[in-house]
Design a binder for these strands. Structure first.
Lengths: 344, 344
DNA sequence: TTGTAGGCGTTATCAA
DNA sequence: TTGATAACGCCTACAA
């Protein structure tokens, strides 16, 4: 019923040359340059000319070719954003304010997923650099040597986010994962928990958080605690890891720190299934402060990172750099907050 | 501690002309064209020449300028993706397979959020078209007239997703929101629910689902049911809307259909707070089959849409079009499934 | 206020 | 197998 007259199919795209400023100018009775000027700065063109050009644009449906513009002006008005995964709300929620901030200044986002492998990231970086973005957002601070080299060679502003380093490629806007892990350990002690355990996802940042938690916990309490690692941070993994701790690692109660709220939710569900009372018999701390942390029962004590601010500040820092400013600090720590709810 | 020697700041970006094929060729002792050929089709260049060029590229850190290439070849190797919101997992989870499918064929994603307003979308479409993408993904099938005009004028493959139409701009890969609403009503009747109510978010597609649910429910049962609308689909809104139904709309039990799983979760929470038993005193159906639908207690009966397949199929359809193929069907309905769990 | 000339860094088309 | 030459569509001088 829909394919019979095919309004859009076979006949389309026949070497169409597209409308150019040249063509618009011809119709408006001016030269190509005048059209260009009319678009970039209307005040440099007489009102009558402007009107004729406007009409010609309307008639032809002219849309300027930004590729050509970028080639000669050396400004692509694109900013690259590289994140491990778009479906992870952690990254998406930084990206949203980042992109909206840039959009309001006329920039567009060239987005790619990199996964968590530095070599894959390097390949993506190269592909992006070939598009000549005016700046680039990277997630994390551990990159392949080749990535650093390419980025420095490209001479564009770079912001590394969602982590902290003293030697950024250019700019860094983030927080310390180790410090957040230590903060959980310190909270545990202050709240009176003398026993503990850790559940981590397999990625490097998660392990860094949990490693810092465990070693700080040991410093404060004098005893080692078990840390188990799941390859991926799912609810099922959280349940399985708690079972592992209880059934095979001799863990029998205390505070369990998790590398993400999703894992923590799994722990809560497994605890409920086993009739273990939270927080009296088992205390749970997550990471991320996702929406679920607030709605889960009992409410999840967790670490909140201001992702909106991070996205926005990163965008502003890049814009400043693009504008030639030398920022007062090239490393900005947005910190984190421990949100105490009922689970610990 | 980090800003003293400023390795990346002020000195950078000094009218750098960047390495070109010309420069690489000079070092390798060949012309610029030969470098171009070496990169696009190594078999057309002698092995020795190839080796010298490779060395020259390594030495200079040359990264080809895809803008220039796109300008002359009329292939940007970019595909635009326009979604209402990146942080909404619904859209993000379609985007991920879409972009990974395209990436494997050398395309990159130019991403923008459009919100839910057709005029805002039109502005975004224009900005994207100026970058000359080789194809474009739109979310939904209701667009401003100007959007349709621009898109048709651009003569590039367009896929409209996450909805259904008999008159697509070009291609459509999606499902029928109305049919999904009717399916919930039919399920309700078959399961023996004689009373019902609806809770919808304010956006047009959500209202279409709930409208279809209500009218089909009326057809089947002969009685009108109340439908309340929240501006935005949050847990808090779900709680508030159930309260509204119970306290002010004379609803006293039966099946509540929600336009999203998040709203449904709010309903479950409010019901629990009021001591209303689910599903015995109140049955709840969501939409989307997010992860929470499975983990919430009781498990949420909901509508599942295969978002992964949609993203992938949309990508494949666009790739086929780019390759000049005329697809057998320009409208593909991926359908949906009602997943029955404990809540209804 | 408007126009002319010259290039931006590639790919396409010939010719050698 | 390689190279010269001509675009691609626009912006940046500079000139009128």
């Amino acid at each position: 019923m829909t394919q019979s007259d095919d309004p859009s199919g076979a006949g389309r795209k026949r070497n169409q040359r597209g409308v150019t400023m040249e063509a618009v100018g011809r119709i408006a009775g001016v030269s190509q340059v005048t059209v260009s000027r009319a678009l970039s700065d209307p005040s440099k063109v007489s009102p009558q000319t402007m009107a004729r050009i406007r009409d010609a644009i309307a008639v032809t449906g002219f849309v300027p070719n930004a590729l050509a513009g970028a080639l000669v002006s050396r400004k692509s008005m694109m900013v690259s954003a590289l994140v491990p995964s778009i479906t992870n709300i952690i990254y998406a929620s930084m990206l949203a304010p980042f992109s909206s901030e840039l959009k309001s200044r006329g920039y567009q986002i060239l987005l790619s997923e990199t996964g968590l492998d530095p070599d894959e990231e390097a390949a993506v970086v190269e592909a992006h650099l070939s598009r000549r973005p005016d700046a680039i957002w990277l997630t994390g601070v551990h990159h392949a040597a080749r990535t650093r080299r390419m980025l420095i060679g490209a001479s564009i502003p770079v912001v590394e986010t969602w982590d902290m380093t003293e030697t950024p490629i250019d700019l860094c806007v983030g927080f310390s994962h180790a410090a957040s892990g230590r903060a959980v350990a310190e909270f545990a002690r202050e709240a009176g928990y003398t026993k503990g355990a850790g559940i981590s996802a397999g990625d490097e940042r998660a392990q860094r958080r949990l490693g810092a938690f465990a070693s700080r916990f040991r410093e404060l309490s004098g005893c080692n605690i078990p840390v188990v690692t799941a390859s991926y941070g799912s609810i099922a993994a959280g349940r399985a890891m708690l079972a592992e701790l209880l059934d095979r690692r001799g863990f029998s109660g205390g505070l369990v720190a998790c590398s993400s709220d999703v894992l923590a939710q799994g722990v809560l569900i497994e605890a409920a299934a086993r009739g273990i009372a939270v927080p009296t018999d088992l205390a749970v701390v997550g990471f991320g402060d996702q929406e679920l942390a607030e709605t889960v029962e009992p409410g999840l004590t967790t670490i909140r990172v201001n992702r909106d601010a991070m996205g926005r500040i990163a965008a502003q820092a890049l814009l400043a750099r693009i504008g030639g400013e030398t920022p007062p600090r090239d490393v900005i720590d947005v910190g984190f907050t421990l949100i105490r709810r009922a689970s610990a």
